[in-house]
């Protein structure tokens, strides 16, 4: 009875107030050697396959990578020029300058968590400067955010988790929406898009930076299915995440802090775990912002 009561109290505290972070971090320290041991065999296999790969394979790979590097360098030159130009223009418009985002590489441990949540464990923790709310990318797009840190490990929630919502915009026309996870790594749902809105299959959506937790303009997903149901105010839209949510091994942790300018316009971080009733209010907010930004852009 005592233990049952205690568990109930713990659950309420954890769910409602997020007060048990230190306890969790402590217990996590006990678990982390186990995670390390479980992860070890796969790591050894990966390392040894690297060590045993043939010379010719390595040579071709090296060639491929250096040519790719050359191509990227060339594009980077252009990018630098564009960045400078952009910064100059922003200054002219007296908008605040964008801070370049720095990234750090972390590895995903091959450890299985709760199968009904989309969580991953990373091999870096608060000791290396990982903080709760830190955005997570892979080479192709946004993956998720850190929800829990212990000194040596951190747990991240993927954007496909059913309790994760991410404010995004359609790249083509700046239409704002919220990408909500559905519990599978292959689909997200885009909510609160009116039936008459201009959105097509194949559109890329990227982070809008509203909510101030994710930096703006990182690609998130490609629209894969649109259902316009007559009589319903909103269309049902599915999108496919661009990041390899279930295949990446290495991920990038973004080091940027939220930009103050955008925090003012969106005081409530929508990327937090949202309940469904909190969301409509949120879209009202984002539409408002959209109007503001459009007028500012002109």
């Amino acid at each position: 009875m005592l233990f049952m009561g205690l568990s109930l109290i713990f659950m309420t505290l954890d769910h409602r107030f997020q007060q048990l972070q230190t306890l969790r971090a402590g217990l996590n320290l006990i678990i982390s050697p186990l995670q390390y041991v479980v992860d070890l065999p796969l790591r050894i296999v990966a390392d040894s396959s690297e060590a045993l790969s043939s010379r010719s394979y390595l040579l071709t790979e090296n060639e491929r990578l250096s040519s790719e590097n050359l191509r990227l360098q060339a594009r980077l030159q252009q990018f630098e020029a564009l960045k400078n130009e952009n910064q100059r223009l922003r200054k002219l418009m007296q908008a605040s300058e964008r801070v370049a985002d720095e990234v750090e590489i972390a590895e995903i441990l091959s450890v299985d968590l709760d199968p009904y949540k989309q969580l991953i464990v990373l091999n870096k923790g608060s000791y290396e400067g990982v903080f709760v709310g830190q955005p997570l990318l892979d080479a192709n797009g946004v993956m998720g955010q850190i929800v829990e840190t212990s000194p040596l490990r951190s747990t991240a929630m993927l954007i496909s988790d059913p309790s994760h919502a991410l404010p995004v915009q359609v790249n083509r026309n700046g239409l704002r929406t919220v990408a909500i996870g559905k519990g599978s790594a292959q689909t997200l749902e885009l909510r609160f898009i009116p039936t008459s809105a201009d959105i097509e299959e194949g559109d890329i959506v990227s982070t809008s930076g509203l909510g101030g937790r994710f930096p703006a303009d990182y690609p998130v997903a490609r629209v894969s299915k649109i259902q316009r149901i007559p009589g319903e105010p909103f269309a049902y839209i599915e999108a496919e995440p661009l990041a390899y949510l279930d295949r990446s091994r290495e991920v990038l942790l973004v080091l940027s802090r939220p930009e103050p300018e955008e925090q003012e316009t969106a005081p409530t971080p929508a990327e937090e775990t949202v309940d469904s009733e909190a969301s409509p209010e949120n879209t009202g907010l984002s539409e408002d912002n959209q109007a503001k930004e459009v007028s500012a852009g002109e």
């Binding site: 568990s7 109930l8 659950m11 217990l27 678990i31 186990l34 949540k117 969580l119």
Partner: peptide
Amino acid sequence: GLGTAWILGLLLDVSQGALLGQHALGLTV
């Protein structure tokens, strides 16, 4: 006994990223 079950459950919760107390309650029962 129950104490062991409860502590194991807490550890399981942390390792699974579940709500703290979820498996603790389950294993205690």
